[in-house]
Amino acid sequence: MGRSYVVEHGAVPSFIALLASPMLHISEQAVWALGNIAGDGAAYRDILIECNVVPALLARISPDTPVGYLRNLTWTLSNLCRNKNPFPPLSAVQRVSKMLDNLLTALQIYRRAAQKINTWSRWVQITSEMTNMLPSLIQLLHLSDKDILSDACWAISYLSDGDNDRIDIVVRTGIVPRLVELMSHEEISVVTPALRSIGNIVSGSDLQTQVAVDAEVLKVIPVLMRHQKPSVQKEAAWALSNIAAGPCRQIQQLITCGLLPPLVEQLRNGGSVGSDNFTSGGTVEQVVHLVQSGALEAIINLLQVKDAKVILVILEAINNIFMAAEKLGETEKLSLLVEELGGLDRIEMLQNHDNELVYQAAHSLIEKYFSDGDVVGVKVEGTEEAFVFKTSDVKRTFEF
């Protein structure tokens, strides 16, 4: 109620004017007040943006700005990026994206500059826009403040949480490699928003996802999938799922970087993330590789969960694997293997599920691949540890 009273009585322009106060503590209180107003919802956020708060805030960065002030400033910028109903105006997003890119880039340059005093020559490689802002960012080159990094990364995560046009604004700043680097930061308060930002970016177009892949995000994700915090594991698995939803070229990069074992481990631990994406977008050979990594048994075991949405995802993944087997002419052998792993019993039970979509999906699988004793008399070479699909020109071993 207090904030609405302040805004409705015209205090916002006064707060913005106080940003320019020569008395730093007054200016900082104005930053803090504006940050609280910005965080109170999309309507107040937009009022601030319409009053040109963004350029007024950016003007406060100088070589003499204390770290504490910069923390409040970055937090306020982060709040200006929040809320999705509606999203912030694109013009403001572009300005804040450039600013946050420069903040994070400056902190990155500092770490390198600290190693060699003669790295001043590196500054000439910065873009002309960065060079124009550099006088107000020099102070940041002496910082590696985790709070500034955290709030800046959260701001990027808010800006990238939207449609592909908004993601593109963030990607075009060139910030993705820095975000990938921050995914390995020692502070969880930095890792979490950096990972969320990358997860948003790889949920975009194939080209936007490729930018993250080119920045070697696939080398970082396996580490985060084994992180001690379950929430980080989940975010990393979500990012992996989005990459697995891409074209077969990106799926192949996922395989090459050794991400199938952690994906299968995630499945064994009860997560369905990525299984349907991978099996629908991958080539036959890539789906074979997934099954070779032990995914089929893990996928079948997930049919015991109670969440109907998860069950539908798993049934779709199983259907996709059968479609790959059809292309190899090995449907009957896969049917027998699924039965031996207990999958047939579980799929049959799902025909009694309360959810109509689950019933239909389970019934369809039974009708297509298990009806009328189709698997009777099929000879399987090997055991469930080394199951072989053969055609005249293709041989693939499915290892479990």
Rank of each mutant, 00 (worst) to 15 (best):
I37A: 05
G246F: 00
T65R: 05
D168A: 08
A317G: 10
I117T: 09
I61N: 02
I167Q: 06
V305R: 11
G274W: 02
A20H: 08
S364M: 07
A56T: 14
D168R: 00
I188R: 00
M99P: 01
V12C: 04
Q360N: 10
L350I: 07
L140R: 07
T192H: 04
M349G: 13
L100W: 04
V217Q: 04
D147H: 12
P247S: 15
D276N: 00
G281C: 06
V394D: 15
E399Y: 07
L24S: 14
A59E: 13
V213G: 02
I255V: 15
I126L: 14
F387A: 14
P261T: 07
E235M: 14
V213H: 00
W75D: 12
H289W: 02
L344H: 04
R166D: 03
D101S: 15
F370L: 09
D307I: 00
S160L: 08
A295C: 06
S160M: 05
A308D: 08
S150F: 04
A92T: 11
S293W: 02
A43H: 05
W32I: 11
D161M: 01
S62D: 13
T76P: 10
E330S: 11
P193W: 00
E297H: 06
T397F: 00
Y110F: 06
P135D: 10
G271R: 02
Q360D: 15
K379N: 08
K309M: 05
S136A: 14
A114G: 15
N269Q: 05
Y359Q: 15
Q125K: 12
S157F: 04
N102M: 13
A59Y: 02
N102A: 14
V220H: 04
S275D: 03
L224F: 08
V273P: 01
N164Q: 12
D374C: 03
R268N: 12
G343E: 03
I321V: 15
L334M: 12
V284L: 02
N79D: 05
L141R: 09
Y5A: 14
E330R: 00
I255Q: 09
Q228D: 12
C81K: 03
D101Q: 13
L182Y: 06
I117E: 13
M183N: 05
A155Q: 05
R166M: 01
T383A: 11
P177E: 10
A324C: 13
R249L: 04
Q351K: 00
L57A: 07
V273D: 10
G373V: 10
E367G: 05
D161Q: 09
S272W: 03
G68T: 11
P177V: 12
Q29I: 06
Q210F: 02
K146S: 11
Q252L: 04
L137E: 06
D145P: 08
A33C: 14
L302D: 07
L34A: 10
P262E: 06
I175M: 11
A20N: 11
N355Y: 00
L263A: 10
V170Q: 05
S392F: 09
A244F: 03
L24W: 03
S392N: 14
E28V: 04
A114R: 09
V291P: 01
A362S: 07
V171C: 11
S91M: 11
G2Y: 07
S189E: 10
I167T: 04
L218N: 06
L137G: 03
V96F: 08
A113M: 13
T127S: 15
T279A: 08
D393T: 06
D168C: 04
I318K: 00
V6K: 09
